[in-house]
Design a binder for these strands. Structure first.
Lengths: 198, 198, 198, 198
DNA sequence: GATGAATGAGCTTTCATTCAT
DNA sequence: CATGAATGAAAGCTCATTCAT
């Protein structure tokens, strides 16, 4: 960011910009995310946008960071060893559903499609490492299977994200049945039965 | 498409264009997919491209249809009742891995990011219906659980796609261990154990 | 200027602004001269800058006037009839070198490239008239040739300015040899030998 | 340049663009040189401009090169040893006047004010070297004085350019009297009389 | 008076699309 | 039919200027 917002007014402006960007990203995709559109939706002038973000990439980078923080918070909660196994899985699933209920599609676009700025590599690596750690922890603690934790965690992460994103697309994120099946998916995959040779 | 290619030469041209488009889509993403770039990679003039495809959206629509056909073929094979349950699951997983090994990223971009043309709705609906049918069939045949097949199929579809896409991103599609875990995921989710109340 | 600075504090502010403008003009050229940059270098807020100068053009107009005053002072000294011919030429050359040693490039940009404000015409005409007068005086007094003083003065003015600017660009303004050649140029051109027919 | 114009149509387009750029540069200065204005004056679309020149800097770089070629041609002619000393000086002065009669101010802006592209350094160095060589040759051949040829050539180059530019500004380039005084300036400066100690 | 957040006209550049050759 | 030069709407971004605090 070009300058850190100190005053309340600035803070409100940057927040409005970030919200608008996330909203548009989910609604119209990366192609539809124009800086002018962001400014308009945020209710500020294009000049104000560029007062805080040096360029478009830096803007979505900031949006990305916000999302990453959300996801990591969920993973941290799901790794809390002071609660039961069931509670942790529930926390993971519910947290993911909650996160994706705001700007359902934005998260997907952010991770999968949007170009990366120069210093995005670092942000992303930090996130992916923390993310993997989170899933692996979940795995190690909750699973009684003996298997390659690395691969399992990766598959689980992809599966959860994919199922949640699909639900977001189908607009069924709020359905209790979906939640139940998601929990089911995680529980079963973390269960003791080893890999079936097929 | 503006005109159906009858002669062999035309057919080769359109194929080259579609290949080029898929390649660029995977390599440079939707933002990098320009009609001029497609023409250049295909070794055709930009004028020729527009002889066969009325506009950019029609072009990626055609690419999408090709991918859809591939996926549907895999699902059809996985629904073949003449083989064993294990064989069917293996066919599903292996088919998905194979499809995503060519242009690993293109598939993702195609489904999740690229704008839809006017008549894309129909193509997509047809595909999604067939896709759901395929997964539901797999579900009904293989699962012994009593549950809402609709939701289960959706979660499974999303989970498989997500895990495969994640593997494509991590460049681990060829790993045997990944395949094993994927099979494991499907088998477990289709197993008899009912949804755990969490 | 919007208001004449009376108090010492105001005077210091406007001076800082003018210095900053000249500095940037020399360092980054006309394209690099932004009002925000001037304010920053001057250590003032952009708002304060506009308190004293109604717009950008008025600002550089003021810078121009300062430079003009410097040049005119040199010409006046060089027209002083109480000293010898040699002394006067030396005063001209040394004065020019001195002026161009501060902000070497700024002077050039100011005269040759920067857009003129509405009321700049007057300022400039006043200067050019005085300038021509100065050079013509030098000519009439020092030259023994019979020729069109007007044209000769113009050529001499252009030649001196050009040579000095070139030296500023080559960073050789301080070289004694350069000074000697400059003096030589003026002396020779003011000498008695009439125009050679070529 | 993005692509070398082969066909006659392309060649006409690029020429029109370069002419328009030089014209505007002289008329409105660097600040007034917008790519849109160039395209409009050239009578082509902005897209066509960018088909041949990758960006604005590359465009003025091309203009610069054209001017440099003109100047170097004049210097080469003025260094021709097969003619008399007077002829050479006349060729220099007349050539300079001719060059500056088209787009009188453009040349100045080009040399002194316009930002340099990345690879401009080379172009410029090549030119300055050739330019200095040309003037030094003139010096060595024509002057009978013993002095530092380097400094003398530099002062002469600056003086000639300055006087010509001043005449261009005063719109007196066509005056025969001006030409006579210019010749006079060169002849005198190249004459046998050594540097006067002042 | 001083400040600096906010504004928006205008500039550079891209790329889908057309059409004369 | 194939070509690729030409087009121009629209996107990213800057910077002179204003005005609420």
């Amino acid at each position: 960011m070009r300058k850190e917002p100190r005053q309340a007014r600035s803070r409100a402006t940057t927040d409005a910009i970030l919200d608008a960007a996330a909203h548009i990203l989910g609604e119209r995709g990366w192609t539809g995310l124009t800086t002018n559109a962001v400014a308009e939706v945020a209710g500020v002038s294009i000049g104000s946008l560029y007062q805080y973000f040096p360029n478009k990439l830096a803007l979505i980078e900031a949006v990305r960071r916000r999302h990453f923080d959300d996801v990591l918070a969920v993973l941290r909660a799901a790794a809390d060893e002071k609660t039961s196994r069931q509670r942790r899985i529930a926390a993971l699933v519910d947290g993911m559903i909650t996160i994706h209920s705001r700007y359902p599609a934005a998260h997907r676009v952010l991770l999968e499609e949007s170009p990366r700025g120069a210093d995005s590599r670092k942000t992303c690596d930090v996130f992916e490492t923390a993310c993997r750690k989170g899933y692996e922890a979940l795995f190690k603690v909750n699973s009684r299977r003996e298997t390659d934790v690395r691969v399992g965690a990766q598959v689980l992460a992809g599966a959860v994200a994919g199922a949640v994103h699909e639900a977001a697309r189908q607009n069924t994120l709020a359905s209790p049945m979906l939640r139940a099946e998601l929990v089911n998916l995680v529980v079963l995959f973390l269960s003791k039965r080893g890999p079936c040779s097929v």
